[in-house]
């Protein structure tokens, strides 16, 4: 490794900070939870999860964390994705495939609109 100049150190820090920021979970206001129970995985939750994470990276969103959760008891609706945000509260979507996953990122998270057609009620 060559010795760094001031500019190179700053460029390295910018790059590494972006890498570390992905690890950081503090101060993020939007939280996406993907159901990864056996039923969810069987219904394609892995594809859903990857689509959401990739879309978030592609759109450069920094205020979102994506976590996994076990089965929520709505096995017929899997894969289930829940989104928590200050603007829209807790909203759950059912049968989320890759296309809907990207739509959730674009419409729900970025545009702030609930996608009513796919919304489900976890309490019911």
């Amino acid at each position: 490794m060559a010795k760094l100049s001031l500019e190179e150190l700053r460029a390295l820090r910018a790059r590494e900070s972006a890498r570390m920021a992905k690890r950081d979970i503090h101060g993020k206001s939007i939280h996406v939870v993907v159901g990864m129970g056996t039923c969810g995985i069987q219904a394609g939750a892995k594809v859903t999860l990857n689509s959401i994470v990739d879309e978030i990276e592609a759109k450069g969103l920094k205020d979102v964390i994506v976590t996994q959760a076990p089965c929520q008891g709505k096995c017929d609706q899997e894969p289930v994705v829940e989104v928590y945000s200050p603007a829209l509260g807790a909203v759950a979507y059912g049968k989320v495939d890759a296309r809907l996953a990207r739509q959730i990122v674009d419409e729900h998270i970025i545009a702030g609109r609930i996608i009513k057609d796919h919304q489900i009620d976890l309490e019911a």
Binding site: L12, R13, E16, S17
Partner: peptide, 17 residues
Amino acid sequence: DDYIANDGYVALEKALF
């Protein structure tokens, strides 16, 4: 790199320059 990412050596930059 982990240290640098978390504002490591920012203070040294300031002190030196």
